[in-house]
């Protein structure tokens, strides 16, 4: 045997796909920037009541809508409420929608698409027709029905959004699984007699992570805006609570007179969106060993 003990030691240190991914992620400056912004946003959301200079619901009708100043950094809205404070509090609802609704979509969509794509045949046919039927249901009616049956509840809203968003995820995952399924390495492990659950967890899932991550980072801003649409219909959160989505849709109404009411919430959402995309792209590259530069 030509291997020396030193070699063996080096070999034993090992590296797993995930450790490699982390170190590659850390080399990607944009992704690290994205990650920092996302962490910052989460911290801000958690400590909103500590940071916020004013109360989010206290009105000051005498002041009314005022442009950014040293007292109110981002100005005030038509009811004289501090915009910076409202964005801070809004991040709680928006980030929660983003994270919870997306995780619901992710869980159902990935599971559904994986089963459908892996088994194929009649099972696939049946599962995909169910997806088609759900696609055809009008989204708002679906949510109104849920609200009528279960009463208005913010968590139900998260679930409802997730329950709609998973459809596209399921389709993406299914098509990815089907293409990986045809690779010879899957044939190889099937013929070795590896358990199906292990084939999926070790051979299929890691190879479809890229598209899943990218689609997830696109879904998060999507559901944040969806929440504002529902709030606008009176199905989501209610004033004086704020969310980025509702701040933006209010801002649009008074865009010409008080542009800052649109600009700052929209800017916040854009920065979040960019950071998520940077992070998503970084993650996608990081888990692909082929992108290593060594």
């Amino acid at each position: 045997m030509s291997t020396t003990s030193m070699d063996l030691e080096k070999i034993q240190q090992g590296r797993s796909l995930w450790q490699d991914a982390l170190s590659r992620l850390m080399q990607n400056h944009l992704a690290v920037f994205g990650l920092c912004v996302v962490i910052l946003l989460i911290l801000v959301a958690i400590f909103a009541d500590v940071i916020a200079p004013y109360s989010y619901q206290e009105q000051n009708l005498v002041l009314g809508a005022s442009p950014p100043s040293s007292d109110h950094w981002l100005g005030t809205d038509t009811l004289g409420r501090d915009l910076f404070t409202r964005i801070l509090y809004g991040s709680r609802v928006s980030l929660m929608v983003g994270v919870l609704a997306t995780s619901v979509a992710l869980t159902i969509g990935v599971t559904w698409g994986m089963i459908s794509g892996y088994l194929g045949g009649r099972v696939d046919m049946l599962m995909m027709r169910i997806v088609d039927i759900l696609y055809a249901l009008p989204f708002t009616i679906f949510i109104i029905l849920l609200m009528v049956v279960f009463g208005r509840n913010i968590y139900l809203l998260f679930f409802a959004i997730g329950a709609v968003e998973w459809l596209t995820m399921a389709r993406i995952v299914r098509s990815q699984v089907m293409s990986i399924r045809n690779q010879e390495y899957i044939d190889a492990v099937i013929s070795m007699g590896l358990l199906r659950i292990k084939i999926i967890a070790r051979h299929i899932l890691p190879n479809i992570m890229g598209p899943i991550i990218v689609y997830t980072t696109l879904t998060i801003p999507g559901v944040i805006l969806l929440e504002s649409f529902l709030s606008f219909l009176g199905l989501g959160i209610q004033p004086p609570m704020s969310s980025w989505g509702s701040l933006i849709s209010n801002g649009v109404e008074t865009m010409e007179e008080y542009p800052w009411l649109l600009i700052y919430p929209a800017l916040t959402l854009s920065i979040t969106l960019f950071s998520l995309n940077f992070l998503g792209d970084g993650l996608r590259d990081a888990i692909d060993p082929r992108s290593a530069k060594d």
């Binding site: 010879e184 390495y185 044939d187 890691p206 190879n207 692909d288």
Partner: peptide, 20 residues
């Protein structure tokens, strides 16, 4: 069945790219 093993044609698709 495990006593029968296969070597496939395409060395580019017969190995999982995410496994060492």
């Amino acid at each position: 069945r495990r006593q029968i093993q296969m070597v496939f044609q395409d060395p580019y698709s017969s190995l999982n790219p995410r496994m060492t």
